[in-house]
């Protein structure tokens, strides 16, 4: 498991990228139009699951040498929503929540729309 570090005047603080992924996942849970994460809900995504373990909930968090985050979301959207609006909303919500809760800066958020599901 990769970790990210930042130094305070009294010592080091280490935040596991899995924790950041969990914050990000909690944001995706509340985003309208996102009905699943690829790699978690789709049964035929075993190839992805086996490739990289942090893909287990469809979210991958990477930390650069400058301690900036790149977060990838592999999402499933509901049929009949505006995908651009949903993605924009996810990006701004994640940025706000993760930066607010971890104090780490996000460099890039990539959204991969892996599938569409009919909900009505």
């Amino acid at each position: 498991m990769k970790t990210s570090l930042f130094d305070t005047h009294k010592g080091n603080v280490s935040v596991d990228t899995e924790v950041i992924a969990q914050y990000a996942a909690s944001v995706a849970d509340g985003c309208f139009g996102i009905v699943g994460m690829a790699g978690m809900n789709t049964k035929d995504d075993i190839a992805n699951l086996l490739k990289r373990e942090s893909m287990a909930n469809g979210i991958n968090v990477a930390v650069s040498s400058k301690k900036k985050l790149t977060i990838d979301f592999h999402v499933i959207v509901s049929y009949g929503v505006n995908i651009v609006a949903v993605s924009d909303n996810l990006v701004s919500s994640v940025r706000y929540k993760v930066e607010e809760c971890t104090g780490l800066e996000i460099e890039r958020i990539n959204i991969f729309v892996e599938g569409v599901r009919r909900i009505d």
Partner: peptide, 9 residues
């Protein structure tokens, strides 16, 4: 129903 179904939580 449609609105509730479009979000996970």
């Amino acid at each position: 129903v449609t609105a509730y179904k479009a979000v996970m939580k």
